[in-house]
Amino acid sequence: MNGIPMEHGLLLSVVLFVLGLTGVLVRRNLIMILMSLEVMLNATGLAFIVAGSRWGQADGQIMFLLILTLAAAEVGVGLGLVLQIFRRFHTLDADSLNGMKG
């Protein structure tokens, strides 16, 4: 794939990243937040692949594998926590989880 300049690919991944970030900031549902987090992580994975492809190394793809694995682990734990939170608080509204402040 040597037609697409690296900068375009990076730009795409940055846009995806920002979209994910916006999702985290805007959505109130915890599961939606976790989904937006996934988007962010995958955007960075895309950036790695693009960078790796520019240098012709496999390192980018390896990093993407690692990112994928760890994102999955993170989200797995996250969903478990969300389950417990729902049992305890009976809501998935992120803003209602503000018992500790100041």
């Binding site: 970030l21 985290v24 900031l25 805007v26 109130r28 937040i33 992120a94 803003d95 989880l97 503000n98 018992g99 500790m100 402040k101 100041g102």
Partner: peptide
């Protein structure tokens, strides 16, 4: 300490 609102989205926006 008014900045410590206890809300996740506020915290995340501060990171951003």
């Amino acid at each position: 300490s008014a900045s410590q609102t206890g809300r996740i989205r506020w915290y995340a926006s501060s990171v951003a």
